[in-house]
Simulated assay, not measured.
Amino acid sequence: MNRTVHPIEQESYRILRSRLDTSGFAPLHRAVLERVVHASADLAYATDLVAYEGDLRTAHEALHTGAPIVADVEMVAAGITRRRAVCRLAEATAVPGLTRSAHAVRLAYEEVGPGAVWVIGCAPTALEELIALDAAPALVIGLPVGFVGAAESKAHLRASGLPAVSNVSEKGGSAVAAAAVNALLYTAHPLPHPEEDNR
């Protein structure tokens, strides 16, 4: 299904590309980076975002063959425009040693099982719980925001060896997390890139 791009979005991308040269990035990394920058108006993501083209290609294939998407909060789920995302936060409760967000991750995993694309844009505790589970994700988009635990949880994600998109700093949030998965959903099958890197 072709997507109609609004003129405002077209102009936003024109301005973005006039200020930031993304031509050296591999195709899916470029698509994710540009959509995150478009969603945030923050050019610093060019050096803050961490992603590997091989991981993105695997996730792209999974998404385009029906892999479920899980969001940590409804704001992330609402921002994913092409597919319905599973979000179990409304049914989760705080239990001893577990936040509601972490409990929601457990509930979602019981529903979707392995092979899902997980999109964490709010709660570092949700990301930490997902890392602790043996969830075998197709991809973890780990972009929680905040001064408490956000940067640390993203560092743990990168150290875990899971296929991931993350960023180094404390910034992030629902809009950029949703933007990252939308980039993969909107992108047709990309051509190979000569300098494709996959760790």
Score class of each variant (00 low, 15 high):
residue 3 R to M: 07
residue 7 P to L: 04
residue 9 E to Q: 13
residue 12 S to E: 09
residue 12 S to K: 07
residue 13 Y to C: 03
residue 15 I to P: 04
residue 18 S to Y: 14
residue 21 D to Y: 03
residue 21 D to P: 14
residue 23 S to M: 04
residue 24 G to V: 00
residue 27 P to W: 10
residue 28 L to E: 05
residue 28 L to I: 09
residue 28 L to H: 07
residue 29 H to G: 09
residue 33 L to Q: 11
residue 34 E to S: 12
residue 36 V to C: 14
residue 36 V to M: 15
residue 39 A to G: 03
residue 39 A to Y: 01
residue 39 A to S: 10
residue 41 A to Y: 04
residue 41 A to N: 15
residue 43 L to K: 08
residue 44 A to L: 08
residue 45 Y to D: 05
residue 48 D to I: 06
residue 48 D to C: 07
residue 49 L to N: 10
residue 50 V to N: 11
residue 51 A to W: 01
residue 51 A to E: 06
residue 55 D to S: 11
residue 55 D to W: 11
residue 57 R to N: 03
residue 58 T to A: 14
residue 61 E to Y: 02
residue 63 L to I: 14
residue 66 G to P: 15
residue 66 G to E: 10
residue 69 I to E: 00
residue 70 V to Q: 05
residue 74 E to Y: 06
residue 76 V to Q: 10
residue 77 A to N: 07
residue 79 G to V: 01
residue 81 T to H: 10
residue 81 T to C: 02
residue 81 T to P: 00
residue 83 R to N: 06
residue 85 A to C: 08
residue 85 A to W: 00
residue 89 L to H: 01
residue 93 T to V: 12
residue 96 P to G: 09
residue 96 P to L: 10
residue 100 R to K: 14
residue 103 H to Y: 00
residue 104 A to M: 06
residue 106 R to S: 15
residue 106 R to Q: 15
residue 109 Y to M: 09
residue 112 V to R: 00
residue 113 G to P: 09
residue 113 G to T: 06
residue 114 P to C: 10
residue 116 A to P: 04
residue 117 V to N: 04
residue 119 V to C: 07
residue 120 I to Y: 01
residue 122 C to T: 12
residue 122 C to K: 02
residue 123 A to D: 11
residue 124 P to I: 07
residue 130 L to N: 07
residue 130 L to E: 09
residue 130 L to T: 06
residue 130 L to W: 05
residue 130 L to V: 12
residue 132 A to V: 10
residue 134 D to H: 14
residue 136 A to S: 14
residue 136 A to C: 11
residue 137 P to E: 00
residue 138 A to K: 01
residue 139 L to V: 00
residue 140 V to E: 00
residue 143 L to V: 11
residue 143 L to W: 01
residue 145 V to N: 01
residue 147 F to V: 09
residue 150 A to L: 06
residue 150 A to N: 05
residue 151 A to G: 02
residue 153 S to N: 03
residue 155 A to E: 15
residue 157 L to Q: 03
residue 157 L to W: 03
residue 159 A to G: 12
residue 160 S to E: 09
residue 160 S to Y: 01
residue 162 L to E: 01
residue 167 N to L: 06
residue 168 V to S: 14
residue 170 E to Y: 04
residue 170 E to P: 07
residue 170 E to K: 14
residue 172 G to Y: 02
residue 173 G to H: 03
residue 175 A to Q: 08
residue 178 A to E: 06
residue 178 A to D: 05
residue 179 A to L: 05
residue 180 A to P: 12
residue 181 V to H: 07
residue 182 N to S: 10
residue 185 L to N: 08
residue 186 Y to A: 15
residue 188 A to F: 00
residue 188 A to V: 09
residue 189 H to Q: 14
residue 190 P to W: 11
residue 192 P to M: 11
residue 193 H to Y: 15
residue 194 P to K: 12
residue 194 P to Y: 08
residue 195 E to K: 07
residue 197 D to R: 11
residue 198 N to G: 09
residue 198 N to Y: 10
residue 199 R to T: 13
